[in-house]
Structure formats: C-alpha cells, structure tokens
Amino acid sequence: MSAAAIPATTTVPAPTAKHERTPLRSWQQALKLTRYQLRDYLFSRRFILMMSIVAIIGAILTAVVGYYRPAAFLSGSDAFYSTLWGSGVTVVIVFAGVIFGGDAIAGEFQNRTGYFLMGQPIRRATVYVGKYIAAFVAALTAVVLFALVLLANGSYYFGAGAFTANFGASFVLAVVYLLALLGATFLFSSLFKTSTYATLVVAVLFLFGFMILQALIQGLAHTTPWYILTYADSIIGGVFNASCASAPGTHTCTQPGPGGEITQTVTNATIPEGVGIMIAYFVITAILGLLSFEREEFS
C-alpha cells in the first residue's frame, strides 16, 4: 500500500483552545486499555481460531453422544455434565489461556506494541491489568460458548432438568480456574520477551507438563500434589458427585478391571481445597507477574 494518492497540501490548525483534561486514575486507564485490547482480540484470527476450537469440540461431543447414546452419560444431568463439561471445559480453558494469554505480555516486547503504549503516561502495572482483563473476557467468551453448547445438549436430553444448581456451581469454579490459569499464563508471558517461547512453555505445562508431574508425584511419592494447579481443576467435574473416582476428597473406590474388580484409593481436591489452590495461584502469579513486568526494560 502506498501513500502516493494522498493530497499533498494540508495545513493543520493549531488547537483552537486549551481543553481541560482530567488525568485518569490507573484503574480507569486499565479499563480503557481493556476495551481496545478486547477489540484487538475480537477482530483477530486467534479469536476466530478459539471459537472454532470450541465449536469443533462441541460438535464432536454432540455427535458422539447423539450417535452412541452412552447410558452412563445419559443416566442423569450430573453424570452427563460431570464428564462432558468437567473434562471438556478444562481443555477449553487451557486452549483459551494459551491463545489469549501466552504471548499477551511477551508480544508487547516482540511485536513492539509495548513501545507504543509505554510512551504514554501509564503505569506498567496498568498495562498488565488491562491486558489481563481483556484476555479474561475473551477467554470467558469461549467458556460461555462451550457452556451453551452443553446446556443445549443437556436440555435436549433432560429438558428443564438440564439447568441445575450443580452446573451453575461448576461454571463458577471453571471461571475461578480460568482466573488462576490466566494468572499463571501471564506470569510466564512476562518472564519471556519472545512470544513463541512464552506460548510454548504455557502450552506444554498446562496441556501435558502439570498432568504428568501430578501423576508421577501421586504414583511414585504417594503424596498429594496440592501445589499443582491441575490437581485443583478436578473440582469442576467433581462438584457433580457423579462417581467415586471423580468425587472431591479421598475415597476408596472399587472399579471393574482386568480379571475382576480393582479397589484403589482416589484422592481428589475437596471443593474448599480446590478453590483455595486456584485463588492462591491467581494471587501469587498476579503479584509475581506484575513485579516481573514492572522490572522489565523495553531495551
């Protein structure tokens, strides 16, 4: 694109009068920045990609359940949501965190958009918070879309019984999990100045890393990995109390296995534990991320 076609003569008048300006408070600036950042997200390819991922996951679940009609899922709304929503939404949240948060801060350095913002009278912390809120709203849109797909499915199978208090509670827990995961994502993003590294680290950690680590700790050390965020996410499905294996707390469960029944002790986070871990993750990663970004130089 060239600027050659622009009329060459333009005389700009000096400002006609001095306008009164009220410097904004940091929280007002954060909300203003959120608005523009959100606009950037909503009109970006990444938003279309995220919505497509949710739509594809929703379509596959709808088709598989509709075709096979598994009795275990369709025995009641709690059993239905426990598996489909409980497992599905954590995947959606991890994808949303990676897509909207992975490069949110690192991208400010790599894409040089930070140089545009930091020339303005705005605190680094304000930029961080504004971008966090925007990423949260964009990711929440994806979560809401997934919830709508499952509620539509649920109402098809269970009618008015699809709209349960347990689903509401689980949705709230999913939102708290999203807060925590995005907090951690932003922390990793603020530690890197390269978007690819930041996105890769976040994706690997949340898609495989933490789950492998959790399994190793539980299997080998026989201790409860309460300090891993993915340990806490079991409460999203667990709140439905649909099965012994997924119910919150420690239980001895007997399940069918090869050569007979297997009895094992299952440890899941209790609801208060899970919420506590998520909130702790959110608070600690937010503080560390803010401190990290405050010390970053746009060199």
Binding site: P23, S26, Y36, Q37, R39, D40, F43, S44, N111, R112, T113, G114, Y115, F116, G119, Q120, P121, I122, R123, F298
Partner: peptide, 20 residues
C-alpha cells in the same frame, strides 16, 4: 505518569495493534 503527561513520544518505531 505526571512527567509523561506533557510529552509526546516516538521511540524505536513502535507497532500499533494491527486490528486497530
């Protein structure tokens, strides 16, 4: 914040958010 209120700054050819 107070110091930069009076200033207009262009450093290192920054990028604007592409969808704006």
């Amino acid at each position: 914040m107070r110091a930069l209120e009076a200033a207009g700054v262009l450093i290192e050819s920054p990028e604007v958010y592409p969808s704006l």
